[in-house]
């Protein structure tokens, strides 16, 4: 008689999910709580004495409780608010661009033409690149001195010298939006495409017989059918945009001045450039709260639409 037979179904299943849940609890939920704690303390990374939590011989420092001081500090900081408005612009522009470009790509790829499988493969390339490489290759295209796009503009006699895409703050921010969209829109396109292919062909044939043109079919058939996916894509894009960090690191470092400093970058910089973990985690926690909210929306949507039984 083996183990599986004796256990009740529920306990057996619990046993199967336990390792994954334990790992996630230890490495995500626990640090999440610890971070929350840190955001209420005056963390000094160099100090190892003071109050600490002893767990199985491991000493986790707890630092000194300072109440809401870190939060008050960041809400008093004009840079936090300007970063927040910038982040909202970034998120809005990115969600719009990634969604529209993704939808456009999916519409093209939904047609039948020679070489469609190849084009679908190419779709995966921008998405499979590390953001470090994404940043690098766009430097190669946009750089003031050796950028290919600047070279193209010169060859076409459209500019006299070169355009400094990263010198002006607003231009740099928009470059970040577009480069990130270049990287992410293909995934949106994949989701849209999956949705389009699940729409029955018969409906389209019927619409065609009734004389509906391409855009009519798009507006009255495709778009309504894609609504859940459209929502999914925008929620995922919103979360990703709020948290984007690596491209800023590679391309602008939050500059010029603070013109590409988003809330995520401000928090990261506060924590790891200035080693102010307290205020840093406080800033990042304001982002976490937003993500929690979006997860709730996302979860409700998914459960409501796709798994009414769960």
């Amino acid at each position: 008689m083996t183990l599986g037979v004796r256990l009740s179904e529920g306990r057996f299943a619990l046993l199967l999910v336990l390792p994954a849940l334990l790992a996630i609890f230890a490495v995500v939920m626990l640090p999440l709580l610890y971070s929350l704690w840190l955001s209420f303390t005056d963390v000094n990374v160099l100090r190892t004495s003071g109050p600490a939590l002893e767990l199985f011989g491991v000493r986790v420092p707890l630092f000194r409780w300072v109440g809401l001081q870190n939060y008050v500090g960041i809400f008093d900081d004009p840079l936090y608010w300007s970063s927040l408005w910038r982040t909202l612009y970034f998120v809005g522009a990115f969600v719009l661009e990634a969604t529209l470009v993704g939808l456009g790509m999916a519409l093209i790829l939904n047609e039948r033409f020679a070489g469609r499988p190849l084009l679908r493969s190419l779709l995966l390339i921008p998405w499979s690149l590390s953001r470090v490489v994404v940043g690098l290759l766009w430097i190669g295209i946009l750089d003031f001195e050796f950028g290919a796009f600047n070279g193209l503009l010169y060859n076409l006699h459209l500019v006299d010298g070169s355009i400094a895409f990263f010198k002006d703050g607003f231009s740099a921010l928009n470059v970040l939006v577009s480069v990130y969209a270049w990287n992410q829109a293909p995934f949106a396109a994949l989701l849209f495409l999956a949705g389009m292919q699940s729409i029955s062909v018969d409906v389209y044939s019927a619409a065609e017989v009734d004389g509906a043109g391409y855009w009519q079919r798009f507006g009255y058939l495709t778009l309504p059918a894609l609504r859940p996916i459209l929502f999914l894509v925008t929620v995922l894009a919103t979360v990703n945009a709020f948290l984007m960090l690596d491209l800023i690191y590679v391309l602008t470092m939050g500059g010029p001045a603070h013109d590409t400093t988003t809330v995520a970058w401000l928090g990261f910089q506060t924590a790891f450039t200035f080693f102010k973990f307290g205020p840093g985690t406080a800033i990042l926690y304001t982002l976490t709260a937003l993500c929690l909210l979006l997860t709730l929306v996302y979860y409700r949507l998914i459960l409501a639409r796709f798994e009414p039984a769960a």
Partner: peptide, 15 residues
């Protein structure tokens, strides 16, 4: 899966 990984990094660092 939707969590800002970066919010955990200070905690990871200390842990």
């Amino acid at each position: 899966r939707m969590l800002p990984t970066v919010v955990l990094v200070p905690a990871f660092f200390l842990m």
